[in-house]
């Protein structure tokens, strides 16, 4: 097991990559993938802090990560449904071409 700050650095890199993808890519699916990467980075922080904390026998860190994964699963289901709805309406998943909110 590596020191805590190395895990934090890895998680930061993952978060940065996800953020860069969300900010720069046009494809809505890639944007969703970037959000998933950022959520994974946050979960990695949960587990790293839990394991390196003063009380690694407590299960709260694992529980936090588990609930975060559950919320992320709900988020990705709704997000992908939105991508399908957007594609049906606009015939594209490129976010910069989807400019009107009116259905």
């Amino acid at each position: 097991m590596a020191p805590l700050h190395q895990y934090l650095l890895l998680s930061l890199l993952l978060f940065g990559l996800g953020l860069a993808g969300v900010m720069t890519r046009r494809n809505g699916l890639i944007t969703l993938m970037g959000i998933e990467l950022m959520l994974n980075a946050a979960n990695l922080n949960f587990i790293a802090f839990w394991r390196h904390g003063p009380n690694p026998d407590a299960v709260e860190g694992v529980l936090l990560a588990m609930f975060a994964i559950g919320v992320a699963a709900a988020e990705v289901a709704v997000g992908l449904a939105l991508v399908i709805a957007i594609f049906r309406r606009f015939r594209t998943v490129n976010l910069d071409e989807v400019q009107e909110l009116k259905g």
């Binding site: 097991m1 979960n43 587990i47 994964i69």
Partner: peptide
């Protein structure tokens, strides 16, 4: 690597 076996399984199953 961090010793969280259960979360590893959850990660593989869910993600």
């Amino acid at each position: 690597n961090l010793g969280a076996e259960f979360i590893t399984a959850v990660q593989v199953l869910v993600y």
